[in-house]
């Protein structure tokens, strides 16, 4: 009996912790949503009200009137998508060579890639910026996309996954005289789909939230991404909290949608970055 009681008590504590943490995680975001729909007087009412007095959707529409919101949304979606597709292609190609091919210097090259994971990004930030400005690429999509097209981390992660794939199909295909490209395209890629999706979603979310690089390589609102746009917004609206929070909601909403759809892959991606790395 006492063990049944103990298990009930444990479950109650467990649920209490679950709910408490959910409240802590969600309350600030609900506060953002609530503020974004308030009138200016309602924003500053004290004590704070969680449910807006008068649902002021014009906070959102006025952002579209004043600022290139569509442009920022499109820029962010375009840059994130282009970078992720590029990373998936280039990193998986390199990962396939490292995982499955034998050639002189393979292990050395792999360790060089691996060692570069220890380099903090600040060290390469300044030369990358200098290169981009010497090329005259400041304020272009090229500047936002090309420096991110491959990452040693992606190569490492995908290579680890490719190593676990069964070799039989490839060997049979080799005996059939299939080229390496054909094996990569018709065997490896389909088998590796879950890990590619996990890496892709993880990388997409990182790109969407990237701030420092777009901040230093863009000047005009035309080329800005949503995160840099938020900074622009916060400089122009100062303490107009309702509109600032509306901007926040707009920058978050598409990402949240993708996260909701691809949650499974995203959490796998995090697991892959974690402990056993």
């Amino acid at each position: 009996m006492s063990s049944a009681n103990a298990s009930l008590a444990r479950r109650v504590v467990g649920y209490a912790a679950l709910i408490a943490l959910a409240v802590v995680a969600a309350a600030p975001l609900l506060w953002m949503l609530s503020t974004s729909l308030k009138s200016n007087s309602n924003v500053f009412s004290y004590p704070p009200q969680w449910i807006p007095h008068d649902w002021k959707f014009s906070n959102y529409t006025s952002l579209w009137d004043d600022l290139p919101m569509n442009r920022w949304l499109l820029n962010t979606a375009f840059i994130s998508t282009a970078v992720v597709l590029g990373q998936l292609l280039f990193c998986s190609m390199a990962a396939y060579a490292f995982a499955r091919m034998t050639f002189r210097g393979r292990d050395l090259l792999f360790y060089v890639f691996l060692a570069s994971l220890m380099v903090p990004y600040q060290v390469t930030l300044i030369p990358a910026f200098v290169l981009i400005s010497k090329l005259g690429w400041i304020d272009t999509y090229k500047a936002l996309i090309i420096p991110q097209l491959s990452t040693p981390f992606g190569i490492f992660m995908l290579r680890q996954f490719f190593m676990t794939l069964p070799k039989e199909l490839e060997e049979a295909a080799r005996l059939d005289g299939a080229s390496y490209w054909r094996i990569y395209r018709t065997i490896i890629i389909p088998l590796a789909k879950p890990s590619l999706l996990a890496f892709g979603v993880f990388s997409f979310i990182g790109m969407w939230g990237d701030f420092l690089w777009p901040l230093i390589v863009t000047n005009t609102p035309d080329k800005m991404t949503l995160t840099v746009g938020l900074n622009y917004l916060s400089n122009s609206y100062n303490t107009d909290w309702a509109r600032l929070m509306a901007g926040d909601v707009i920058s978050l909403a598409p990402l949240m949608l993708i996260y909701a759809i691809a949650q499974r892959y995203f959490i796998q991606g995090i697991a892959m970055t974690g402990l056993k790395g």
């Binding site: 600030p28 506060w31 953002m32 969407w208 901007g247 949240m256 996260y259």
Partner: peptide, 29 residues
Amino acid sequence: LRGMATFRFVYFIPYVAPVAAVALLWRWM
């Protein structure tokens, strides 16, 4: 416990959100 998946979805929202967006939110808070 049941419902763990739903809870986990909520816990990860702040982690997924860009730092820039949550920084602006916390400035208000």
